[in-house]
Each structure stands twice: as C-alpha cells, then as structure tokens.
Design a protein around this nucleic acid. Structure first.
Length: 571
RNA sequence: CGGGGUGUAGCGCAGCUUGGUAGCGCGCCUGCUUUGGGAGCAGGAAGUCGUAGGUUCAAAUCCUAUCACCCCGACCA
C-alpha cells in the first residue's frame, strides 16, 4: 500500500477528552474515527488488524469443531419474549418497531437466535455435541461508552454456543474452549491476559470464566494470588481472613453525639475501624428490606450479596424505610430490629469478631462490646461472606496476600445449562426416545476490544507496537529524500519485490522530511521498518529497524527480503 | 439516572466578562528554497460561531429553550 493513497491521516494532537493510550493512539494513528457516542468507523489499517484477529479466532474455533454461521442482527421481539429476556433486560437492549408496528430488537447477544436455529436443525443425541459460532456486529445501548474501543455501543463479537446431551459433555467441551481461548490470545500477541472465575450475571448458568487483559484502564477489578493459582473477579472474590475471638465484655451504651460514620465513631472512641460493625440497608425491586452487617474496616460487596439472595438489583434504602423497622440511620444495629419484616445478613467478619462498637438504634448513642452470639439471640439472621476483598487480604487457596489488578474483559466463557433450551423448547431425543433440554455453553470474544487491549499492553509514547501476527502490515518502507539519485527507484523496486513475495508492506512514497516520516511511522506502529535514503543507496544497502528497538542496522539490499521473511515466519 | 464540563474552519483552541469587520496554531492547496526525528519564505481555499426562539439599530458575545458530546459515579451478557 502506498501511503500517499492510504485513507486515514495521522493526527499530531491527542483527541479532545481522550484518556487511555489505546483511544489516543488508535485515533491519532488513523485507525478509528468516532461517528457518534460509542460508535466508531474502522479505517483501512484497523480493518486489516480486525480481519487478522478474526481469522485467528476462526482457526481456533474451527479446531474445536466450531461451525461458523451468521445469525441476524435485527430480531423479532417474540424470540426474546420466549426466553423472558425481552422484559428482564434493561435499556441496553435497543427495541424498535418495524413499519407494521411489529416489535423488533437489535441483537446484543444471540442465545435466542441460536436456539431458534438449533431446535429445528438438531433433534437427536447422535448429533450432539455441536458448537456453532459467528463473528458479527452486536448492538448494546450502553449507558456510558468510554475509552475509545474499550466500551462501545456497536462492536464486532465472536460468539459461540455449544449444545450437549450431558453435563459431562459440557464440562469436557468447556475445558477445550478454555484452551482454545488461551491459544487465541497468545497468537494475537496479547502479553498479559489471564482467565478468572467470574460472576454469571444476567446470562444465568453456573460456571463462568472471564479472560482479562491486564491494563491500567481496565474496568474490572480482580484479585490474583502471587503464584497465580487463585484468580477471581472482585464481584465474587473471597479472602481467607483469620478472625480472633476475645473474652466477651459487658454491653455498654455510650454517648456518641453526631458521630455517624465509622471514621467518626472510631476516632471519637479511640478505637480502630475493625473494632466496629456497620450496617447497610438495601431494598430489593419489590420493596423488601435487607439489612447487611459487616465489620467497620470492610465494604459490603453488593454482587456477592445479590448472588446470595438471588436478586438482580439492590438499592440503598432511604431513611423512612430504615426507621419503619425500628432502626436509626447512622446509629443502626440489627439488635431490636423486627426480623420478621427484614432479612438480616451478617458477614463472617462480624460473626467471628468480638466486642464491636455498633449503633444503639437511638440517635447519638452506640453500644460497645457487641457480640453476635449473646446480643443477637432473639433475631433470625444468616452468616454469609459478603465482604469485598481488599488488596493484600489472604488468598483462600494459598494464604498469600492477594494482589489487586485491573483488567479489560476481552473474552468470556459460560456454562449456561438449560436456561434457554428449557424456556424455548430446544430439546433432543435421548437413547430412550425421550425429549430432554439441551445443555448449553456460550463463548464470547470482543474483537475490537481485543485490538484496543493489545495497544494498551504494547505501546510506547510514540505509538502502538503491533505484534507481527495482527500488524496491519509487516513492513514499512520509508523512502527518504526520494528526489535524490536512485532513492525512488530503489524504494519502488523493493516495494514491488516484497509484494511479489506476499510480504505485506506499507510504502511511504510521499517524500516527507525525515522528522514527520519517522514520527508517523512510529504512530502507525508497523513492526519492521526499512529506510531507503541517499546515504545507503550508493552502497546497495538499506537501514532496517524493528519497532520498539532503539537502533537500526545496515543490510545489503539483496539480503533484506530473506531477512524480513525469516522474521515474519519466526514471530 | 445523579454530579461536573464543553460545543467557534478538518484537528486543537482564543474571542464572550464590557454586544459593533470571526481570529490563532496545526493540517490542506500553489510556487520557490530545504531534506536523518514534526523546516523557511510568499501566496491561497476553508467557519450560517451546536440548534431554535427572544432582546437590540446591531448577537459568537445578553436571555430562554433544546440538542449533542466529554469526564466522574450508578448501571453493564
């Protein structure tokens, strides 16, 4: 490709309001352009990268017997009504009507569509297991797109769905899919990606893993043990904290005027936050009150609480509701709360500690020396781990301090079970001729997000450093001073020879000065650079430089093609 | 959905307080000089100042409404 004709200009300045490296560099390098919030056009070089990522994914999916299909983007609402998700999914599902008033939607995920396909095409245990996948546009009406391609409304996703006649079959395939994912991210050239246990969320089902590209700008927080054996999303992560019981002291009421927060109370009483207990009030969607109690030095993990209660949403309760059950906001404790009306969940940290300071359910008063076994005898409650793990808390597997990291979710795999097949009648006949719902797994990868994640992990201050496997071009030829004797001829000749050898080459034929030409080459980030200039043409040599390395080397013109081919092959 | 902020040339911005010829840098076009890490000179094209009302002799500037976008939070298969 001649750079003089390449669509996609380089931009010197960072785009307004961009924050993350991948956003800045992909825009500045002429890879992506925003059309509307969270909606981007991919320019030719980005399209080349995306195609390469897709092909790697395709090869690996095919290697685990995946069959590629293409399901519709626009779907009838009735399909989603069958699964129940037309109503249960929020505003991120874009709903609309066609000309006749028929309810439609844009697919944000394709369980319904794939079940529609498989339930009519597959009917016998003899055909199972199968996996179908597609690489296709998804639309999600995200509340807040951000960070360039990291969170967008319209994006390309590989989504695969497997169908099984038994849990064992799903387990076996799930493992193979996990291995395929590891290979995919390795081949794409992502440097630091780990799979973690994750929360299944609205997808339903049980076992799930997220593949996280470790990056500063990641939206998820995860905890990893130093040896890597424990890896979990903060939404579900647990820590094995050893609490110690002490001798119980007398319950003592103390005056704590205007001291509502844990900080204020512990400072006022000259205690540490871990000597206190705090109470958080939630309401579920139908208005039931939930009282969560945790030691003052921890935070309630709402997703763990939701998972325990089997709820999709929880909100903080307002003061009216809190007072209605006999508690005093700011001075609340589960003592004397009417436990018929509310569900009381107590974290381990409270159950296994002694002599805590808790509210007295009376303005400006707290109790010292609260002990759950003695002071909560008349109240029914459950003890559950609802604590948010903190950096350095002991790992539940190894006991070593957990490390907190940020990650971009670039892929995930779920065991869906029979949630969709049961709701939508996706059955097969077993060996006894009896109908049974198929057991499903699903497997997603965000393609554009993967590209952005590679940039997050592989760039310097001048631009991206593309891994060879997905680089838009292998080689960038810079013809410096092409008007001088022989330079243009040598560059053109090399360009054509490389094309003949099927080397993917971008050729800067514009005659720019060295400064702009090199800066733009860095900003584009192609792995290999060849500089042809009046300095080296008379000696029949070229300069050769690897992106990300500091110095260039001189190489005979005759030898450069073989050299380049070796590097491309070896990478 | 809550809080904060921004809309002026392709990009980045100034001008607005105190109304009076729409500006700067980069980029783009032409010519000459220059050519190893973002060159110089000369000339040129390009903006209904987000949109709609209003006030005024006169509005980018004042008033009202509205839309779009960004950041933080809530939410997020």
């Amino acid at each position: 490709m001649r750079m003089s004709k390449l669509v996609g200009r380089r931009i010197k300045e960072d785009p307004k309001d961009s924050v993350t490296p991948s956003h800045k560099l992909l825009v500045r390098g002429g890879y992506i352009r925003m059309v509307s919030t969270g909606i981007y056009s991919l320019l030719p070089m980005a399209k080349r990268i995306i195609t390469k990522i897709e092909n790697i994914i395709r090869e690996e999916m095919n290697s685990i017997e995946g069959q590629e299909v293409l399901l519709p983007v626009a779907l009838p609402a009735e399909l989603w009504e069958e699964s129940g998700r037309y109503d249960s999914v929020g505003d991120e599902l874009l709903r609309f009507e066609d000309r006749s008033g028929k309810k439609m939607l844009l697919g944000m995920t394709h369980e319904e569509a794939v079940v529609h396909l498989v339930r009519t095409e597959v009917s016998s245990y003899k055909q199972l297991p199968i996996m179908v996948y597609q690489i296709q546009t998804k639309y999600r009406d995200e509340a807040r797109p951000r960070a360039g391609l990291i969170r967008v409304r319209e994006f390309t996703m590989k989504d695969g769905y497997s169908f099984h006649d038994s849990q064992e079959s799903l387990d076996e395939y799930y493992k193979k899919a996990h291995e395929a994912y590891v290979r995919i991210f390795d081949r794409i050239g992502m440097k630091d990606v780990i799979s973690i246990e994750s929360n299944s969320g609205m997808m339903g089902g049980s076992l799930s893993h997220e593949f996280m590209a470790i990056a500063e700008c990641g939206e998820d927080t995860l905890f990893v043990s130093p040896d890597g054996t424990y890896r979990a999303n903060r939404e579900i992560a647990c820590a094995d904290i050893k609490f110690t019981k002490e001798d119980e002291c007398e319950l003592e009421k103390v005056h704590t005027p205007e001291k509502k927060s844990i900080e204020d109370v512990s400072e006022f009483l000259k205690l540490k936050p871990e000597n206190t207990g705090k109470v958080v009030f939630y309401v579920d969607i139908v208005g039931n009150l939930i009282v969560a109690m945790i030691r003052g030095d921890f935070e309630v993990n709402e997703s763990k609480l939701k998972n325990h209660l089997g709820l999709n949403s929880l909100e903080f309760a307002d003061d009216e509701l809190i007072k209605a059950v006999g508690a005093e906001p700011g001075y609340a404790s589960p003592m004397a709360i009417n436990s018929d009306k509310v569900k009381i969940i107590i974290d381990r940290s409270v159950a296994e500690s002694s002599n805590l300071v808790v509210g007295a359910n009376e303005k400006d008063y707290h109790y010292k020396n609260f002990n759950i076994g003695r002071d909560l005898k008349d109240v029914s409650f459950e003890v559950v781990d609802i604590a948010t793990v903190r950096n350095g808390d002991p790992c539940p597997k190894t006991g070593e301090p957990l490390q907190e990291k940020r990650g971009i979710e670039v892929g995930n795999i779920f065991q869906l079970g029979t949630k969709y097949s049961e709701a939508m009648g996706c059955n097969f006949l077993n060996q006894n001729g009896k109908a049974q719902p198929m057991i499903m797994g699903c497997y997603g990868i965000g393609v554009g997000r993967a590209m952005a994640s590679v940039v997050e992990q592989s760039h310097d201050k001048w631009g991206p450093i593309w891994p060879m496997a997905i680089a838009p071009y292998h080689v960038h030829i810079c013809a410096l001073n092409p008007k001088k004797e022989g330079v243009k001829d040598a560059a053109e000749k090399l360009y054509l020879e490389m094309m003949n050898e099927n080397i993917e080459v971008l050729y800067d034929d514009r005659g720019e000065k060295a400064g702009p030409m090199f800066s733009e080459a860095d900003l584009i980030g192609i792995p290999l650079r060849i500089i042809i200039s009046p300095k080296t043409v008379p000696e029949n040599k070229v300069e050769f430089k690897i992106r990300g390395e500091k110095d260039s080397v001189l190489i005979e013109q005759d030898a450069i093609i073989d050299k380049v081919k070796d590097i491309i092959k070896g990478d």
